[in-house]
Write a protein that binds this DNA or RNA. Structure first.
Lengths: 264, 264
DNA sequence: CCGCTTCCTTGATCTGAATCAAGTTTTTTA
DNA sequence: TAAAAAACTTGATTCAGATCAAGGAAGCGG
């Protein structure tokens, strides 16, 4: 059983109830049988990180893995002269860490206040070995992330700055839709989990270019900027028509797009 | 048991001996017990594809999965106006296809003559359900591919054309090293599995830019172009110093870099 | 509420890679 | 083995996004 501890960025508590866990039905533990679930409960440790904190740093030993339960975080990798690229976006339910590897490969940074449900890597690996339900779920999640990473490689390799920004909006709308298990209407409102500089790092652009494209898209009526971190998308289909790959952004909805107009 | 069949691009044969399979010790089946191994043997189907052939096409139903046993292939994804990006490189031992998904997400194209060891997706999924060894191995392979994809996202998002090309060379040297289980000396010779236009698609550049950077690197003595598809790298460390991320290309060797000079 | 800092926007200019345009070399085919 | 096609290289020009530079708006700490 875990001793309660505290460090610079986070706190540990055992007062956490899995039955009201916000990611209970899509995290790595979501397909466990009751017995496996008890094992996880016994070894879990809830921690929180404040916005901007490093959850892990590339190169340091990987001591724990776990699920992101609240907030959002991102994976980042840097070139030696400081150029940076975000290489992944972590939303509630996503798994953090890599069983079978002893060293962290990417910086993981809290984009907002973040809450994690962590396990020491050895403890987790023991459950992983023993439980086909857990390893199957983790495989499924990893395969999904691999597909998403490859889809994003197309954006980074070939899309224009306008296409990149509209693709990011489409991605965020979908994330919301999936996690809120809400259907998307013709219009949508998204909360940006990042500052402009983070968006630039995500898209492989500079902050100035990102800012200009925000203005352009607003000028063209494709988005409405409502305060620094909120944007309204009056017509989702018009937006994805600007991504250069509307087919896959429509398709990725898994058939949940609601085409009815007259929402706005 | 599989009936022998033939189609436009490939042939099926049952004359294939797993005990001399070139990827026996790192493919998805490499950790099976003898019983599981027999199951694979019973359902496998060997097929070959000629250079340039589509092994699978994005959007079509995924009917089979399998291992690449000989040759190399790549994953590609296109924007609607035809811009293309390679999003993965498949070498012998790599797994093709995605259990749990019914539709192919990427075009898969044979870069050379290719030989595959395929299974019908349903057959494979049955073994995957039953065998922890197979699902653990597939998880491990998928996690490795995810890391590789994310590393490449940094190249596509932030690297200059010169850095992209040197990174590709570093990647190919490492692939060789890993598959030949041969240590890398200070100098290396690589066989390019692609034409210039494929390299351009891989790097997110145009063919003209790729050609110019080849010439520049040769002019600077970092490579020697020996025929269309062979290049000699006289000094690997000098080459990776040009990638903008020499640390990770050195590191990725898993400590196998041989620093002894006087090889050339 | 004020001053400070951080974040964001906009403008002017520059630059690396794209595009357009020939040529050259290699490979294929007849 | 000659002709045609495909693959590659090099040069001139253009352009999207980077860089350099300045100012404005929002959040914050006292």
């Amino acid at each position: 059983m875990q001793v309660t501890s505290r460090d610079a960025t986070g706190t540990t508590t055992d007062k956490f109830n899995c039955s009201v866990c916000p990611v209970r039905d899509h995290a790595v533990c979501s397909r466990c049988n009751p017995e496996e679930f008890e094992q996880f409960k016994a070894i879990r440790r809830i921690r929180s990180f404040s916005k901007g904190a490093h959850i892990m740093r590339a190169g340091e030993p990987m001591t724990s893995v776990g699920s992101l339960t609240r907030g959002s975080a991102y994976l980042r990798r840097s070139l030696e002269d400081g150029r940076r690229q975000m290489v992944g976006l972590l939303m509630p339910g996503d798994f953090i860490g890599r069983p079978g590897r002893r060293e962290v490969a990417f910086d993981i940074i809290a984009g907002t206040e973040v809450q994690l449900c962590q396990f020491r890597i050895g403890d987790f690996e023991r459950i992983l070995q023993a439980s086909p339900a857990v390893s199957r779920r983790l495989l499924e999640m990893t395969l999904d992330e691999l597909d998403a990473a490859r889809l994003w490689m197309l954006v980074l390799g070939r899309a224009t700055s306008r296409e990149r920004l509209t693709s990011l909006f489409a991605l965020l709308v979908q994330h919301d839709a999936r996690h809120m298990s809400r259907k998307i209407g013709i219009s949508a409102k998204i909360e940006l989990p990042f500052a402009r500089s983070d968006i630039a790092e995500f898209l492989g652009l500079t902050i100035e270019t990102v800012s200009r494209r925000f203005s352009d898209l607003q000028g063209d009526g494709l988005i409405r900027i409502e305060g620094r971190r909120k944007i309204l998308i009056p017509d989702y289909l018009a937006l994805i028509a600007e991504t250069g790959d509307s087919e896959s952004w429509r398709h990725e909805f898994h058939g949940e797009v609601c085409l009815s107009s007259a929402v706005e």
